[in-house]
Design a protein around this nucleic acid. Structure first.
Length: 561
DNA sequence: AGTTTCGGCGCC
DNA sequence: AAAGGGCGCCGAAACT
């Protein structure tokens, strides 16, 4: 008996299937069955399904109530393998992979679709061309060999498996939806924005604030038009380059207060207002389209609905079903803990081995107890801050945690020089395409960029490209390795929930939400803790680093913080 | 008239 | 005090 099978859906709703051996090669003939979902349902002993595309297959299985334990997504693996091999620009469809294998013309990838509001299932549609199972098997076998040639084959195998698991989670979340009370949402909108006026214009509160802004300037000003606001400030004798919050808020002018309030509420109105509710909430569920591995760093994205940017005030509308609860879990200081694990810095690992506030521990060691300074320094190191207090504090950080800072510094250097940069599991940051300016610099033609540490940051100045790539790479190793860990955490949590009525309903980088009967809540809380520990061991091996979560069992998302 | 980019801001 | 990383979304502005 074998636990791994390959599967390819056919045009007519049927499927081709083949059992695979431990080496990934078929150990039996390809068989043809008339019903895709039934073919899977009737083989509960299969623990991993190998298929071209999870978005192509899995929603159709879920629609008939069939879940699978694990899968291997060939096109997702192709993307990760190409990236790892430094070939991220090449087409990643299975058809393209086959063409490379057989030496034919390589078809370009089809363009990505964007989501339609309120789209009915299936939320995903097939993106690439189908392949006969025999061809898929050839691509799969070659991918197995490519894993063997990776820098760390075992980690690369873990990465493709983890991201395939993530795609299962995403598909299941897309099907479940996030419990959402339209009534509460409307209440919140009314409290914040006031009544709506007929005709779709601004609601009352926004109209009032716009009037206050105009009164303060002594002429009609539309606060939603940056150009208008800049002009109005200029006429009042105040020069501003933009209307960004941080630039406006320090200005002493009566228009500032209503203007900032307007911008805050305007944002709610346009991005999460009544039309959003109309578009995205159906039958008590918000159904965004989660996409695992949608970014180069491995973070997820959502397609439509802005699910990863739900404003805090709107979270009041996320309410569990009667008799159910939301278990909301937030990883504590994930980035510095990940930095400790990937850099193996002894001091930082020691600090990250505690479950207590990491920034406080860092500040006790390097910043004489000033937690804010410690946090700024750590985040500055991770994000590549180039000036200000973060840079000053970086020196203190470097003295106490030299290996950690050296790790991100080396990533930044590699990024600047156009070398490949990888996460712990082997997800790879593509080297940026060289610009003409890069070539000019290499040829010795000065581009105006000084190497001094205290040089001015010039927004939009093209010769900062190399520096920008350095910052990207610096952040990539931390953010991306965190994404590696998060995928394994989700996979483990998903397996625990499989035995319960509990459903994963939301995931946002370092935060996960489970909707479950209230009797299961404590079981889920424990499962999250175990999943975090297991993910830490699987991802980073034996380190003292812990990954604690702050967990809340609530009926309303807004009560979790 | 339709499509792309920009400015600003929400989340992490 | 200064303005670092990743995203998505919206309307307006800037284009074809």
């Amino acid at each position: 008996m074998t636990d791994r099978w390959a599967l390819a859906p056919a045009e007519d709703g049927g499927a081709e299937l083949a059992p695979l051996g431990p080496d990934g090669l078929p150990v039996g003939p390809v068989r043809r069955e008339p019903d895709l979902a039934e073919a899977v349902r009737s083989r509960p002993e299969v623990t991993r399904w190998v298929w071209r595309s999870t978005p192509e297959v899995y929603p159709r299985l879920l629609a008939t109530g069939v879940r699978v334990e694990r899968c291997y997504d060939i096109e997702d693996a192709e993307t990760l393998l190409l990236g790892h091999e430094g070939r991220s620009g090449e087409p990643r469809s299975a058809a393209a992979a086959l063409a490379r294998l057989r030496g034919g013309p390589v078809p370009p990838d089809p363009p990505l679709r964007s989501a339609e509001p309120g789209a009915q299932s299936p939320l995903f549609e097939p993106q690439g061309a189908r392949l006969p199972l025999a061809d898929l098997l050839a691509v799969y076998a070659e991918q197995q060999r490519r894993h063997d040639r990776a820098a760390h084959p075992d980690r690369m195998r873990l990465l493709t498996a983890a991201e395939s698991a993530g795609m299962l989670v995403a598909a299941e979340m897309n099907r479940a939806g996030l419990p959402w009370s339209a009534d509460v949402h409307r209440e919140v909108l009314r409290e914040l924005l006031g009544e709506r006026y007929a005709g779709g214009g601004e609601p009352r509160r926004l109209a009032e604030l716009a009037d206050e802004v105009s009164a303060a300037f002594g002429r009609r000003v539309r606060p939603d038009l940056p150009a208008d606001v800049v002009k109005a400030f200029a006429q009042a004798g105040i020069k501003v380059k933009s209307t960004r919050r941080w630039e406006i808020e320090s200005i002493d002018h009566p228009a500032v207060k209503p203007l900032l309030e307007y911008k805050k509420l305007y944002r709610i109105w346009v991005a999460h207002g009544w039309s959003w509710l109309q578009d995205w909430v159906r039958q008590g569920r918000f159904r965004p389209e989660f996409l695992a591995g949608g970014t180069v760093t491995g973070r997820w994205v959502t397609n439509g609905g802005g699910a990863l940017q739900i404003p805090k005030v709107i979270r009041r509308a996320v309410v569990s079903d009667p008799g159910w609860r939301l278990v909301v879990a937030d990883a504590d200081q994930m980035e510095p803990r990940v930095l400790a694990a990937i850099s193996r810095d002894p001091g930082l690992m020691e600090v990250a081995g505690r479950e207590t506030d990491l920034y406080q521990s860092v500040s006790d060691r390097a910043f004489s107890g000033d937690r804010d300074q410690a946090k700024i320094a750590v985040l500055g190191a991770v994000y590549g801050q180039t000036s200000g207090d973060g840079l000053k504090n970086l020196a203190a950080l470097r003295r106490r945690f030299p290996a950690a800072v050296a790790y991100v510094d080396e990533a930044a250097r590699a990024g600047e020089e156009g070398r490949l940069v990888r996460t712990w599991l082997g997800r790879t940051c593509p080297p940026a395409a060289r610009t003409g300016e890069d070539a000019a610099e290499e040829a010795g033609i000065p581009s105006g960029e000084e190497e001094s540490e205290d040089r001015q940051w010039v927004p939009g100045y093209a010769s900062t490209n190399a520096r920008a790539r350095g910052r990207f790479a610096r952040n990539f190793v931390v953010q991306g390795s965190a994404a590696d860990w998060a995928l394994l955490m989700l996979a483990a949590l998903r397996r625990s929930c499989a035995d319960l009525a509990a459903e994963l309903v939301f995931f946002q980088h370092d935060e996960v939400m489970v909707h479950c009967p209230k009797e299961e809540a404590e079981t889920v809380v424990a499962a999250i803790r175990e999943a975090a520990d297991l993910a830490g061991r699987l991802t980073f091996g034996r380190t003292p680093v812990r990954f604690p979560f702050t967990t809340a069992v609530v009926e309303c998302y807004a009560d979790a913080k």
